[in-house]
Amino acid sequence: MFEARLGQATILKKILDAIKDLLNEATFDCSDSGIQLQAMDNSHVSLVSLTLRSDGFDKFRCDRNLSMGMNLGSMAKILKCANNEDNVTMKAQDNADTVTIMFESANQEKVSDYEMKLMNLDQEHLGIPETDFSCVVRMPAMEFARICRDLAQFSESVVICCTKEGVKFSASGDVGTANIKLAQTGSVDKEEEAVIIEMQEPVTLTFACRYLNAFTKATPLSTQVQLSMCADVPLVVEYAIKDLGHIRYYLAPKIED
């Protein structure tokens, strides 16, 4: 028996919004420690890794490890039927071929349930090595989304250059060149507005804008985003999900031809 309950459907809606542009379907691996999802996008350029800890749920029970392959388009249709403040419960029997998603209004006067067929997905699981990153940047998630959106107008690629002075995002194309520099913030009143750079050595990497823009669909989940970079390895873009877990996106760099 698997059962996981969250106080607000809005969190699940935001999580789905953060992955459904990259993935058509994905396997949710459930165990007593929580729910994990790892999947590459169709073109195998990026990888999404979602962790939801069992202690972040209002109720969590998972008697046996369970892998639930879900069509994310179908899940989006179901979640559209929930009000943001509804409780949401996911339930499945062991070895089931369906999952039940139930919404309850705060006053318990409306209860709806949706049974969704599960899929057998033959997904490769990749081992992600521990990396000592050269640069780790923490910045407001909205600012990162704005920069990715703005620079995508100028080029398919963005160059991220991080030094101890700050982080520079550049794009160059037919129109010309765009550069956006962010300095590390001195003192800020609000932690969520800070730009913090931890640098071991400077790094310059090139990434495809369309993937960065897809990652920023996670912006409603978190006030801050963390970018971890190291020469010649994938960028890690991480959004914390308060009290529940995190979503990490790995993006393979572009290299000189």
Binding site: M40, H44, V45, S46, L47, E124, H125, L126, G127, I128, P129, S157, T206, A208, V233, P234, Y250, L251, A252, P253, K254, I255, E256, D257
Partner: peptide
């Protein structure tokens, strides 16, 4: 010009 690498070339299959 730059070439897009694949994520699976960095991470090993488990």
């Amino acid at each position: 010009s730059s070439k897009q690498t694949s994520i699976s070339s960095f991470f090993k299959k488990e």
